[in-house]
């Protein structure tokens, strides 16, 4: 991980997941470029974006992996779950099917990340109120039941986009402060000061042992 020439104390790794066409890449683009990308092609494999933010006076570099929603890239995208400190799980409020798949996305995330990973549920396209197919209350309840943070956002208008990314970072930072996230043992903790480029860890081998280990 080449720590760039910038001054920052942590790197937080995020992944953005969710069904095809829910607007994952647009959310990322809105967050990094503050612009709406109208004609966004399907993501192939993974895309990548960074932005430096500030939480409690600390500069934090967000390294965000935007994954392909298509099933055929699942093998490729799975590699990126490991070591994610934040997972943004996105559905489209105008398409119920994308909401219905959330539980399978959540299972994947829980299996592939470590328990301290902050999972943030985002109901995207909240600007299309007229075509709404999933109510706020329903999704909110789902989030609560599964211990997720939740917000409805719009990559088009930029509503709540910044907030979602920043809230996640705050939560992660808080975990570090509380000691729930051990930086040194870091294993899958995912944040490293840029001064220690030595990889985080051998991570967890779910494959054989279904559940992870090592930390």
């Amino acid at each position: 991980m080449s720590a760039g020439p910038y001054n920052y104390s942590y790197i937080f790794k995020y992944i953005i997941i969710g069904d095809m066409g829910v607007g994952k890449s647009c959310l990322l683009h809105q967050f990094t470029e503050k612009k709406f990308m109208a004609d966004c092609p399907h993501t192939i494999g993974v895309e990548f974006g960074t932005r430096i933010i500030e939480v409690s006076g600390q500069k934090i570099k967000l390294q965000i992996w935007d994954t392909a929603g298509q099933e055929r890239f699942r093998a490729v995208t799975r590699s990126y779950y490991r070591g994610a400190a934040g997972a943004l799980m996105v559905y489209d409020i105008t398409r119920r099917s994308t909401y219905n798949h959330l539980s399978s996305w959540l299972t994947d995330t829980r299996n592939l990340t470590n328990p301290s990973t902050v999972i943030f549920l985002i109901g995207n396209k909240c600007d299309l109120e007229a075509q709404r197919d999933v109510t706020y209350e329903e999704a909110s309840k789902f989030a609560e039941e599964n211990g997720l943070l939740f917000v409805e956002a719009s990559a088009k208008t930029g509503d709540n986009v910044e907030e979602a990314f920043l809230e996640t970072a705050k939560k992660i930072y808080q975990s570090i402060q509380d000691g729930r996230l051990d930086l040194n043992a870091a294993e899958s903790g995912v944040q490293h000061k840029p001064s220690q480029p030595g990889r985080n860890n051998l991570s967890n081998d779910q494959q054989a042992n279904k559940d992870n280990c090592a930390c």
């Binding site: 590699s79 490991r82 991570s203 081998d205 779910q206 494959q207 054989a208």
Partner: peptide, 15 residues
């Protein structure tokens, strides 16, 4: 970063 992710995968396979 992409390589690191793949190394993670490989490590887990190898392990």
């Amino acid at each position: 970063a992409q390589s690191d992710a793949q190394i993670d995968t490989l490590t887990s396979e190898q392990a």
